[in-house]
Design a protein around this nucleic acid. Structure first.
Lengths: 104, 104
DNA sequence: CATACATATGAACAAGTATCGATATGTTCG
DNA sequence: CGAACATATCGATACTTGTTCATATGTATG
């Protein structure tokens, strides 16, 4: 278990798919915005200054990859990160990038 | 420092750029291959069944983002991950994806 | 039921990019 | 220096994808 470093080609594909979804600043902003607390689609669009349609499109992709999850509350649907896994990952990566400078 | 969860829009862009580079299975395969030990371009191309040109292109991108680093040794150039930061990140993400199933 | 509101979907377009083939740069050795 | 090898760059192409506009689905309220 000390050397599972090289994933199979299949795993690599899956990993890449996840990374690809995270590799768009609009989607990242949505994710980080929903990281604090569940947010409705309209709230996301307004707060991040994005069209409602665009937000919905992105949420669809994020939902498909099980990165977010939404539950309906009357007319609105509130989205939040799918699980602690995902949120931890995001926070970790944010830290990685913040510490990026002054390495060696 | 307990709630740096939401990065600035600028940071988000930088983060996304990094993710975008990781969001390609060919590049990921190259990275994981170089994770074990430094590899020459030709070795990467042969082992991963990719054209030399393609490998070089991807290495250029990865180099530009300081994800890999190469040092020349006679005719060959051996590439390795830029620092422990990057390699840790990759390994972590690989684990995340492996544990992906059987969550709830 | 009809109206208003919130979200989702579909078509279409522009921009980005992964890949390939050919060629150039650079390095070693005779 | 010139030949051989390793890597990098350039041009072109096919494909993916982020975004917008218009419209559909779904949900609550008078």
């Amino acid at each position: 278990m000390s050397k599972p470093t090289v994933p199979s080609q299949l795993d690599t594909t899956i990993l890449a798919e996840t990374f690809r979804l995270l590799g768009d600043s609009t989607r990242l902003r949505i994710l980080f915005f929903c990281l604090e607390s569940p947010r409705s689609v309209g709230d996301i669009a307004a707060s991040l200054d994005l069209s409602q349609s665009l937000v919905s499109h992105h949420l669809r992709l994020l939902r498909g990859a099980r990165l977010v999850r939404g539950n309906r509350q009357a007319k609105q649907i509130f989205y939040e990160l799918a699980d602690k896994h995902v949120s931890d990952m995001l926070v970790d990566m944010a830290h990685h990038v913040c510490e990026e400078s002054g390495e060696e």
